[in-house]
Design a protein around this nucleic acid. Structure first.
Lengths: 256, 256
DNA sequence: CGAAAATTTGACGACTCTCAAGTCGAGTGG
DNA sequence: CCACTCGACTTGAGAGTCGTCAAATTTTCG
């Protein structure tokens, strides 16, 4: 099914793993998934949706907008991951009593809350769908690992290039990118928090990308005249997103 | 059961989640878990056990010794995580066709290989044990997130202090630490790779820790005269290890 | 328009890297 | 036993990356 068809029938969950493992879901499972949310919520930008350490009895599916998972330090926030529509933001808190980080919006956001009670039913009655949920948390961990590598090996301009390259690909998979870039409510401060850098330095890094003609960042939009160059500069290899390359996701797990 | 009793009965898997979720396992499940490995293997130090990108049909349980998951960069390696006895090192490759990183030994190691075929049986027949396995991959992700925060916020001396503090706690949970420190085959080069720093700088960072009288690193042994001071210096809060504090693991998931 | 937020730039100091050299310890062969 | 070797560790000097502080400019939005 095309993304348009998918979203027409499953407006809340149509982007979940679209372009990846979603293909393995039966129509019945997709229907079931779409009916999991108990509540829809809209938030403005810079709102804390979940507080670190708070107990949680439901998980958050991101329907529209962008979200950052982060931790408050002394003065500055540190960003752990960024999420795009279709991501199951805090699915792991289903298994872990409390969340070890905050969930903050960056821009207007539409969320769907899935009660853990219903997830338990899914695990019990729909093993295939349950395994898909597990896989999505593993994809999250794979992105964490890439982020670690990025922080260990790259300078700030390259880190930002990597963030742009990754977001571009991820948004593309859920139909939210276009030919020469993508829209995002990220600010330079957010980028700095993701890089472990100061806003001042993030700004200079962006200038570097601009001068190299690899990417521009203006008015909530990332544009690049040279996507291949951007990805090469960032040492970006999209395998870890498990899209449809060499590292495609194993069908074995779902062959039960 | 004490750790000694556990290891007497389950020599391969007795440390798996010991001091954490292991309590929730029935004796029968522990028995089953112990019988999962198809093969035991011993390796010398600095051996590549799994190559990034290679297909895998079994997962690796670390029985004795230390392992690093990492990626080869241009010239230098970048370390993503370190593992201690009892860790299911690459359980996630059960669900993802290929591994996105290498698995390298650092010192002599004893491994137990669990074929994915048997894991599929567990998922089918032992949902409780299956969920425990899922949880262990989520704990891994939680450690990744803490590592990201550490890289974004701390200087190299504090990063190393954080590594020491975390390893100390993790080894303690599986009975491999003592009053004033722990043994480890880690070298200064390994520490540097974990910090995203050069070996030279890691060395100076260790001197800093020594001069502050927070920790010493000699002859494969980490010692500290002031554990509380070390943890405070590293801004280390062990909640994310989900040991037995405020963030204890939810029993809900296991209440099916 | 005016206020607030976001972005941009400069100067200086701190942290970290690179290159180079030197020390220490465990094992090896004479 | 001693000289030798190798790997791990240690130290110094200069350069590059990044942070801090301060201020100016631009954009957003009521």
């Amino acid at each position: 099914m095309t993304l348009e068809q998918e979203l027409a029938e499953f407006p809340l969950t149509g982007r979940f793993l679209y372009g990846r493992l979603r293909d393995s879901l039966s129509h019945e499972d997709r229907r079931l998934l779409e009916n999991l949310p108990e509540e829809i919520a809209n938030y403005q930008k810079d709102t804390r949706v979940v507080q670190a350490g708070s107990a949680c009895s439901r998980s958050t599916l991101l329907v529209e907008g962008f979200i950052i998972r982060g931790l408050d330090g002394t003065g500055n926030r540190s960003a752990l991951s960024v999420h795009v529509p279709g991501d199951f933001v805090d699915l792991h808190c289903f298994a872990l009593k409390r969340l070890d980080h905050n969930v903050d919006t960056i821009g207007p956001v539409k969320l769907a809350y899935v009660p853990h009670e219903k997830l338990r039913e899914v695990l019990r009655d729909r093993p295939h769908l349950g395994r898909l949920l597990w896989s999505s948390t593993l994809l999250d961990a794979a992105m964490h690992r890439q982020w670690i590598m990025k922080l260990e090996q790259l300078t700030t301009p390259r880190r930002i290039a990597h963030i742009f390259a990754e977001l571009w690909r991820r948004l593309e998979m859920v139909g939210l990118a276009d030919e020469d870039g993508f829209q995002t409510p990220l600010t330079q401060v957010d980028l700095a928090e993701m890089c472990g850098a100061t806003p001042v330095h993030a700004n200079r890094a962006l200038r570097e990308l601009r001068e190299r003609e690899l990417a521009t960042f203006r008015k909530g939009r990332v544009s690049s005249p040279d996507r291949a160059g951007l990805e090469q500069y960032a040492d970006f290899a999209p395998d870890y997103l498990y899209g449809e390359g060499e590292l495609a996701v194993k069908s074995e797990l779902f062959a039960l």
